[in-house]
Structures are given as C-alpha cells and as structure tokens.
Amino acid sequence: MPAAPHLKPVEDTVPMVHGEVAIGEDLEFQRRWWRFERIVWIAFALIVLLDLLGVFGKGYFAKGHIHQGPVEVKFERVERLGTPSIMTIHFAPEAIHRGTVQLWVSESVVGDLGNRRIIPQPESSTVGNSGVSYIFPASGGRSSVLFALQPASPGVFRFALRVPGVNEIRSRVVVMP
C-alpha cells in the first residue's frame, strides 16, 4: 500500500502589504543589498582599472626591466598561469668572450616559470649549481637570447641569471592563477 502523502495546511506565511496583498517584500534586506552592490561594483571597477594598468599581468606595470652592466633583462613581473610570455636577455659586446656568451639560469626558469623554448638554440647546455648553464655562439655587437616561458602553476617564483664578469641578476615573478 503506498504511503499517504504528507500534506500541510495552508498558512498565510508570506508577509502582507496593508493587510491585503501577500508580497513578502523585505525592503530592509534590499537596502543592505544595494549597499553591498555598490561595494562590489567599486571592487569590480578597481579590478578592471588595475588590469588595464597591468597589475595582473600583460600591461605597463607588469613589465620588468633589469640592467646590470652589459646585460639587460626584459621580462614579465606578473605572469598568468599557462599563458606564454617572453623573457629577453640582451648582451652588450662586453659580455661576449671568444665568440660565445655564457649564461647560467636558475632552475626556477626551467621549472616554475616553465621555459618551453630558447631562441637561438644554445651551442651547449650543462646542468649544475641549481640551474642550467648555456653557451651561445655570438659574432659581436648587441645580441639577444629569448626564453619562451609558460608557467604551469601559480605562485611567487624567484629566479637568477649569471653571466661571467657580471653581478648575479635576481628578481621574482608573480604567476597569477
């Protein structure tokens, strides 16, 4: 035998207006909600403004630039998860010795920052000292090496670069989720 349906008598639970129309209006809640909405819209506008300025990456404030003697590094201080970017390292002629440029990069460039490609291809690469050492053939004049990065996880990551005869270059990159 099927169970009897559970029936509940109707009660006037919805608040009425002037005792004749059940509307259930909650004006006090609505006023609080309008205040909340205003705060959220201000926050949203702020987020858009900060994004336009590049605070969350891909903009003016995200550009990183370090000049250390004959080495100049251009990179994105703020990266985005899984989004490709380029770290460019310029070498002045003083950084070239016997037709080659030597560059050591910390492991974080390869691991945390997700180095996918190096342009041009290095002549040789050697692992050690918590990083990778590269040797690039150079013919003189200003030369550049590009690292194509694509971070695989969010966080704040420090990196370091070394070129013989130049102070170590250190900085950090924030990877947005």
Partner: peptide, 20 residues
Amino acid sequence: VIVDGTPLLVLDRGKWDTDL
C-alpha cells in the same frame, strides 16, 4: 532571498516608490 532577491513594491495605491 540572497540568491534571488526579494519582491519589491514599486506602485502602492497610486504612489510610485521613485527611489526604488
């Protein structure tokens, strides 16, 4: 009420709630 909001009385016996 948080998710869907609350019904709002915009016209009450010949008077508009202009602010609302």
